[in-house]
Design a protein around this nucleic acid. Structure first.
Lengths: 150, 150
DNA sequence: TCAAGATATTTGTAAATGCAAATAAATGAT
DNA sequence: ATCATTTATTTGCATTTACAAATATCTTGA
């Protein structure tokens, strides 16, 4: 067997953790976190999403998301509304401070993208992204996901 | 801005988390965890490492590692020894049950490698790994690492 | 309309994790 | 030999996070 850093799962998790931590520290001064960014980014892409949808697209667990949204509501980053069509559903909208914060986070996200990919070349970068999507999908059948089909 | 899953940090963290979780569940029946595997793999590569070295190569935080090693010692997976040269130093050795467990984990790690990389091709896989190492290194200067130069 | 079952979200609780302070031992200066 | 400084590891504590149970609402069928 080779050293630990020939193993893909290790490399992947290590890189993923570090970039997440680094990004998190970068945005802390703005009062944001990685998770907050994900929610705002998702709402920026499409506003008025339901909680379940958000949990799915941000990969944040539902119970975690609930508490996160609690705190984001207090800061006027987002607003919960009941869906009039179906009162079980809560839809989330970006609020004033939330939209402002999003505008400040976007350039940081772009910059991180660049820094992370230094010396990797645009073509390879696309391949990397494609591989990561593929890899995520490959894990679908295996363990963990209490999604799909229990 | 595009959807969240065009952002590298998101893709990376998402994939890294999922593969870690899946692997963790896979090895749980054997009484192992992802972290345990990392320590054992590191010791398999080179036995008798000091704690600081292990923390470095496994990307496990020192305080976390201490507690992890406590529990691994109880299971006879590893043994702590004081370095006679410098009594501040603790060196870690794989113990009997640890070596046995390592042998059982190795094929699982190999298999995970294969599953994760389904449809990705050996050449692209190598590029992916190289990119992940590079990317990890790229993050070095940025935030987070309380390493390097304080 | 009411009960039964399905779906969406929230709360309770315990485990994992990291930072900072504390401990232990070595090294160097007086 | 003793004190101050440095290095290595461990413990205290607060935060984060996930799983599971609880709650709320909707839908369907009698």
């Amino acid at each position: 067997m080779g050293p630990l850093d020939t193993y893909l799962p290790y490399l992947l998790n290590r890189a993923g953790t570090r970039i997440a931590t680094a990004f998190g520290e970068e945005v802390r001064p703005l009062g944001a976190t990685l998770q907050i960014w994900r929610v705002l980014a998702a709402l920026h892409e499409r506003d008025g999403r339901r909680m379940g949808d958000l949990a799915q697209t941000t990969s944040i667990e539902m119970s975690t998301l609930t508490r996160l949204v609690d705190s984001m509501e207090k800061k006027d980053l987002v607003a919960r509304r009941r869906d009039p069509e179906d009162a079980r559903v809560v839809v989330l909208h970006a609020a004033t401070a939330g939209r402002r914060l999003t505008q400040r986070l976007l350039p940081i996200a772009e910059r991180y993208e660049k820094v992370a990919l230094q010396g990797i070349g645009p073509k390879e970068a696309e391949q990397l992204k494609a591989a990561l999507r593929r890899l995520y999908a490959n894990m679908d059948g295996l363990a963990n996901p209490r999604k799909g089909r229990g």
